[in-house]
Design a protein around this nucleic acid. Structure first.
Lengths: 262, 262
DNA sequence: TGTTCTCGGTTCATATATTGAACCATCGTT
DNA sequence: AACGATGGTTCAATATATGAACCGAGAACA
């Protein structure tokens, strides 16, 4: 392992719970020599990646990270971060896939991709996704800010016979999303279209959007469903990483339970 | 120089103007061997500090920076505390404004804001500010730890004809900063750009950074200078307060003298 | 008071990881 | 088909990283 990697690894020892670390403790955490760790910290400090608190001699993350983080945000649009993940998702599932982003109380379409595998396929031609009728929407209400439930109930438009029309019906679907870590819509927005959706999180730690697969009902076998679920998890992990977020442990656990039961 | 430093240096080659850099170009910019540069990029990529655009093979800043940047701000919430003050400063002066933070012996850019009032304006695209050539730097040497003078003298790079090139020249500018409570740079870092800068202090009572206004020389009338000075004092007070610090009485007195003489 | 922790930081001989010239494969131009 | 870019790889030479031992300072303790 290169020494540069070892130096950079030290940065991942910091967390919200442990924002300051002393030299000795860092040696223990990194399981490395004191002299080596010290030199690595010197390098990181010179680059502004860590700084030493004058009073306690402890180290904490440095100001250069703020600068670089802002630049990443300014130069790499979210769309770019979702592109490859979405491509492989479409490839692996053979279905139409899309990514939505939450802005305020609205779920917007960010991008979509149709798999050329089947001649009959779902077509995404909406720009905003109703919170009460789509898999993405269930995800948003399940993992997003609390206000979204009320926002979803503000407009119970009936898209199909299966569109939930009451708070209770919606809450059941949202509860399922919470326990499985995924939104599931069985013909609730369009007849004969089933969708599965996994949440995406960004650097604020909040729900930021969802990645979804839409399949025609006749193809939606348990086998395909399992493939989609597995690929959705991969895609969500990848996009979340690119957006600077972390999958909350509750979601990770929900996924683990949902996947192990098959 | 350690190899880790060399790897980290590559990150500072990215800018808003140049968000994507290919391998060969990066070698040229960093003046380093291709093999070495390649390996450094591999290390940075593995750590998520850069990522490679699949299509163009170019490299750009990676998602790990978002997480680390957020964590730094969560730990040391400087940016949030400076935001409103900086906005009103830009508004009131109509010029480009920025805040720098001192970390170790280096002055880092924390954030900047361009006023849309004028079409010609200063643009902040540096990540670290030279101590010997900028208004912020004069403030740092004047009000920061004593080691900064030596650090400033370590690298007398000449940015313009007016950049101070001797300890004596620098000390004169620093002395002025001490008596007025503000750093002043008249074309010392960029031709035709004048800057004024006021120090910021944090909860340890130490110099923590500076808030600055950069104006194009042709607009820099005595009237504007007075407006800038007054607004800088307000901004410095506000940010210092937000960072948990107090303006030292020597600085308060210097400000009082400087302002009353007009 | 002296003993004994632990802490941050430093030293130097040893050994290991870094380096870069030369190389390859691929692409778009001429 | 020859050229000049590009990104990526190899391997001997050597510059660089390493860690056991060490230092001085401060805190806890008896």
């Amino acid at each position: 392992m290169s020494s540069a990697s070892k130096a950079l690894e030290l940065l991942s020892l910091f967390s919200e719970a442990k924002p300051e670390i002393g030299l000795s403790e860092m040696c223990r955490l990194a399981k490395r020599d004191k002299a080596t760790t010290y030199r690595h910290l010197q390098v990181l400090e010179k680059a502004g990646f860590v700084e030493q608190v004058v009073t306690s001699k402890n180290y904490r993350l440095g100001p250069a990270l703020l600068q670089l983080g802002r630049m990443r945000e300014a130069t790499v649009p979210r769309k770019a971060g979702a592109e490859t993940a979405l491509a492989t998702l479409a490839e692996k599932t053979g279905e139409t896939v899309h990514v939505t982003v939450l802005s305020g109380l609205t779920l917007f379409a960010l991008m979509s991709r149709e798999s050329p595998k089947h001649s009959t396929r779902a077509v995404i031609d909406v720009t905003t996704f109703p919170l009460h009728a789509t898999a993405s929407g269930f995800c948003a209400v399940a993992f997003g800010p609390d206000e979204l439930l009320a926002a979803a109930c503000d407009n119970f438009e009936a898209f199909t016979d299966l569109t939930p029309m009451t708070v209770e019906a919606l809450e059941t679907l949202v509860a399922t999303a919470r326990t499985t870590g995924m939104g599931l819509s069985i013909g609730r927005f369009e007849e004969e279209i089933n969708s599965l959706s996994a949440p995406i999180f960004d650097q604020t730690g909040q729900f930021a959007g969802a990645v979804s697969v839409a399949s025609v009902a006749s193809r939606f076998t348990p086998e395909l469903e399992n493939i989609i679920k597995a690929e959705l998890i991969t895609a969500s992990r990848e996009i979340t990483k690119s957006w600077g977020g972390v999958i909350p442990t509750v979601v990770e656990n929900a996924w683990a339970n949902a996947m192990s039961s098959h």
